[in-house]
């Protein structure tokens, strides 16, 4: 190759020494696409979790016993091979790791994306992006705040309850008491709307990032993503709406 001006900036590996991948996961994380793949995989774990959580929540409509027994079941499942609540903690660890990786990847990619366009356009018209796709970052921040509040609220009972009102494993009573305060329900519903938008773009986006999207099935994947997002939204808000409407007491 002829030496030309700027040739020192060529990143070709033609004459480079050879290399093995010592740890594929670290190599993956070092690439921008690898971080996208990490976001897609952790996102898939979290989508699976919110669907299971939503379905579990619906047990509240079978009455206090059904959901309280379900809460107990989540702690005894896996026994006797595992101790009380151990499987639940394993699942929680996986979820926590997924959330952390999802946020770190999103944070790093967002910084790179901001740096990629230091001077913005005077006018830039959106043509194919959706409201959901453009609100992923701030929607994600709303969800993070919500998750922290939600754990402190229903899981630990340290906020949003009178002293002594929250009781461990008394899910039905806790939910009815918690959602009776309208600001709590309102925040919950807003957060679920953010989740709905996040899933509408996120599920399709994850499938695309993992390379399962083709031109032929793109509209179907986007539709399926939207349907799942709306079902999850309706399933979650059915509980606070029912409490506020007085259907659950």
């Amino acid at each position: 190759m002829a030496e030309t001006a700027g040739a020192e900036k060529v990143h070709s590996g033609a004459q480079a020494p050879r290399a093995f991948t010592s740890n594929p996961l670290i190599t993956l994380w070092s690439t921008v696409i690898g971080k996208k793949i990490v976001m897609a995989v952790t996102g898939a774990v979290l989508v699976g979790f919110v669907i299971a959580h939503m379905v579990g929540n619906l047990k509240i409509f079978e009455g206090a016993d059904a959901i309280n027994t379900y809460a107990h079941f989540l702690r005894v499942v896996g026994m006797p091979e595992l101790g009380y609540g151990q499987l639940l903690w394993i699942v929680r660890s996986v979820l926590l790791l997924s959330v952390i990786l999802h946020i770190i990847a999103a944070w790093q990619l967002t910084l790179m994306n901001r740096a990629a366009r230091p001077v913005d356009y005077k006018i830039r018209a959106n043509q194919e992006s959706t409201w959901a796709s453009r609100t992923m970052r701030w929607g994600g921040v709303v969800l993070l705040v919500f998750i922290i509040f939600h754990i402190l609220h229903f899981t630990m009972g340290v906020v949003g309850f009178q002293p002594g009102q929250w009781q461990d494993l008394a899910v039905y009573q806790n939910v009815v008491a918690g959602f009776s305060l309208w600001p709590v329900s309102a925040f919950y519903i807003i957060a679920m709307a953010a989740l709905c938008l996040h899933l509408d773009h996120g599920i399709w986006s994850g499938i695309q990032t993992l390379g399962w999207n083709t031109q032929r099935n793109q509209s179907k994947i986007r539709m399926a993503s939207r349907v799942i997002a709306v079902i999850v939204f309706l399933g979650f808000i059915s509980v606070p709406v029912s409490v506020l409407a007085g259907w659950l007491k």
Binding site: H11, A19, P24, G34, I37
Partner: peptide, 25 residues
Amino acid sequence: LARAVFKRRREPIPVSPLVQEAMQK
């Protein structure tokens, strides 16, 4: 990219110094 990263190799492949740095961490 995922294929390139996860493939188990009998011999190392030539890559640019940019990639090499990441691969040898």
